[in-house]
Design a protein around this nucleic acid. Structure first.
Length: 152
DNA sequence: GCCAACGTTGGC
DNA sequence: GCCAACGTTGGC
């Protein structure tokens, strides 16, 4: 099993939105970055565990855990001219963008803010804590995963 | 293929 | 709201 971290803006889609969704499950649409796309399309597997990270908010940080319940499939919002992340270069016969479905597992006992995560030598290799990193989906090693859970 | 311009992300 | 970092676009 692999571990991941996915970012989302809580004002747009936060962990409570996921918790309140039908079956506590939602598709992770709107990703328009090739590195992140490749991970969702090729690498994220059913049962993989994912940290839910809140970005662009008062206190950015890891707030909970979810799991992959459906592996990569085409992001249909790219085909919809009305959608915010419409991409005319993606078409159903040759989809450019992919998404996975994720299901709410639980919140962490406390939110772990980015400012704190940056302090730990154990996490210095995470793209998350590197300056200027904008990747919205990233792999997490088992060691990093366990270390972060130990911070709860 | 290079690279300047531009747009976006996201912390602060 | 500012701005650094980075990805993408498009002219040449």
């Amino acid at each position: 099993m692999n571990y991941w971290l996915m970012k989302s803006e809580p004002d747009v889609f936060g962990i409570d939105h996921l918790k309140q969704a039908p079956k506590k499950t939602e598709h992770w649409d709107g990703v328009r970055n090739y590195q992140a796309r490749n991970m969702m399309r090729d690498e994220m597997k059913k049962g993989d565990q994912v940290f839910f990270y809140h970005s662009n908010c008062d206190e950015p940080g890891i707030v909970g855990i979810m799991k992959v319940v459906r592996e990569g499939y085409p992001d249909h919002t790219a085909f919809d001219p009305e959608a915010k992340y419409y991409d005319p270069k993606s078409d159903p016969d040759n989809p450019r963008w992919y998404m996975v479905d994720v299901q709410y597992v639980r919140k962490l006992k406390r939110n772990i803010p980015l400012a704190e995560l940056k302090q730990y030598k154990e996490l210095e290799d995470m793209p998350l804590v590197r300056k200027g990193n904008r990747l919205s989906i990233m792999p997490v090693t088992k060691a990093q995963w366990n270390f972060i859970l130990g911070l709860e």
